[in-house]
Simulated scan of single mutants.
Amino acid sequence: MIAVATQDEAIRQIENHFRKSRRKIYVVLEEFHLEWKTSDILMFQKFWYRGFSLKWIAEYFGRDIDEMAVVVMDQARRGYIRPRPSGIFCGPETQPDANVKKRIAKMKILYPETYMLFEDTDFYWDERDVLQFDRMWNEGYSLEDIATYFRRHEDEIALLVIDRARKGYIN
């Protein structure tokens, strides 16, 4: 059921871009696995709260560290994890508060088997806009200014930063 909704959303986003133009479409982070087993996301949350480093968690799941950073962004954005004093590094065990525990319980109901990272995010960009982004980023524009310019959420810009930096197009 979730996969169908996600597929419908992806089709809607592509159709929206085709309506805007017939230019080339660029897909952000297309090499990443954004669909996870819910049980793996729950395990990630457990490791996060137990204080394991992001590097260790990435190795446990056999995933790239950047891919795990995207998991952290998604989970923090949705309120399933909280910032830790040690950040992404190994640190003391913490506990989710009551509100986070409620969100996690709801997550288990909404996503019984499959969890999609950033399911409400538009990963599709016009290729010319990506080149404009590269110029703006390399000229020192802030993430917020770029988000305003493109009329996109800051998370979408942050994901594009990860994508373009991995590919060596931005500093």
Rank of each mutant, 00 (worst) to 15 (best):
T94F: 06
Y111C: 10
M107D: 08
A98Y: 05
T114Q: 06
L110C: 15
Y80K: 03
K106T: 13
T114R: 01
Y111N: 08
A105P: 10
G91V: 02
K101A: 07
E93V: 11
K108I: 03
L117T: 07
N99M: 03
L110D: 13
I104S: 06
K106R: 09
K102T: 11
C90M: 15
E113G: 00
P85Y: 05
F89G: 11
E93R: 14
E93W: 02
F89I: 08
G87T: 00
A98R: 04
P112K: 08
G91P: 00
K108L: 15
M116I: 14
P96I: 05
Y115H: 01
M107V: 08
V100S: 07
A98K: 07
M107L: 10
K101P: 15
G79D: 06
R82H: 12
D97W: 05
Y111W: 09
M116C: 15
N99R: 06
Y115D: 01
K102W: 09
V100Y: 02
G91K: 00
A98V: 04
C90E: 05
D97L: 01
P112N: 08
P92M: 13
R78S: 09
D97S: 14
P85V: 15
N99G: 15
P85Q: 02
R103V: 07
M116P: 14
Y80C: 05
P85G: 01
I104G: 10
P112S: 10
I88D: 14
F89P: 05
A98Q: 14
E113Y: 04
Y111P: 05
P112V: 12
P96K: 00
P85C: 03
F89K: 03
C90N: 13
R103Q: 11
V100A: 09
G91Y: 07
A98M: 10
I104T: 15
F89V: 08
K102P: 03
I104C: 11
C90V: 09
R78Y: 12
K101F: 13
R78A: 08
Y80S: 01
K106L: 15
C90Q: 13
M116D: 12
E93L: 03
L110W: 10
T94A: 15
E93F: 02
I104W: 04
R78C: 14
K108A: 12
P83T: 12
V100K: 00
F89N: 02
R84E: 03
P96D: 08
S86A: 05
R82Q: 13
I104Y: 02
R82C: 03
K108P: 04
K101G: 14
T94Y: 11
R82D: 07
N99C: 11
P112I: 02
Q95V: 03
V100N: 05
E113D: 03
S86C: 10
F89T: 11
Y115K: 04
I88Q: 04
R103P: 07
M107N: 13
G87S: 01
C90Y: 11
Q95S: 12
P92Y: 15
S86K: 04
L117P: 11
S86R: 02
N99D: 15
P85W: 09
P83I: 13
P83W: 15
Y80N: 12
P112F: 02
A105C: 10
D97F: 00
F89D: 05
